[in-house]
Every structure is written in C-alpha cells, then in structure tokens.
C-alpha cells in the first residue's frame, strides 16, 4: 500500500459530525453558574526545601569537621581520604576489628 493511498484513507475522517448546536452556549451557560476560584498563593515549599537541604548539608559538613573525621590520621598510614581511613582502621592489627 502506498503512502498516497493511506493518506486518502485517513482523510476520510477529517470531517467529523458537528457537536450539538448549542454546544458553545451550553459551556458558557455552565460557566455562568460557577465562580472562579481565587489563585492559589505562591507555594514557598520548594524554596524552603532547598534552603533546608543546603543548611542540612552545611551542618553535616561542619559536624564532620568538628568530629575530626576529615583530619589527617595520626596513625601514619597517610591515608587522607576518610573512607579509606575507616577501611584502614578495620584492617589494623592492633585494635582493628578484623
């Protein structure tokens, strides 16, 4: 089947039966009976959330700094990354967990 034939077939649904004669009038009449709702106040929630998220991150970072978790270890391993530091601690011979 060619595109041309398909297009001709589809074109036959281009015209649709018109809606009821008073279609628009019915809509306007229905609108007459209802009042507009006032615009909802601007939602502050996303902005507050962003501030809260930022504040949480800052507090967490400050907590880490204060606890000394990001400080250089004194054990001599020279591992500065705090994650690696924990791993190193686990494998420590004296006092390590493993």
């Amino acid at each position: 089947m060619t595109d041309h034939r398909l297009n001709n077939f589809l074109k036959q649904a281009a015209d649709v039966p018109p809606p009821a004669e008073d279609f628009e009038r019915r809509i306007l009449a229905a609108a007459e009976k209802v009042q507009q709702e006032p615009a909802a106040p601007l939602r502050e929630f996303p902005r507050l959330t962003a501030w809260r998220a930022a504040a949480s991150v800052l507090l967490f970072a400050a907590g880490l700094m204060l606890s000394g978790a990001i400080e250089k270890p004194e054990s001599g391993y020279g591992i500065q990354d705090s994650g690696m530091e924990i791993v190193a601690y686990l494998f420590e011979e004296d006092g390590g967990m493993l």
Binding site: A31, V34, E37
Partner: peptide
Amino acid sequence: LLKFWQRP
C-alpha cells in the same frame, strides 16, 4: 473549558 474558567 469549564475547569479552565474555574481555575484559569
């Protein structure tokens, strides 16, 4: 359309 009128 009615909803649009109510909550434009």
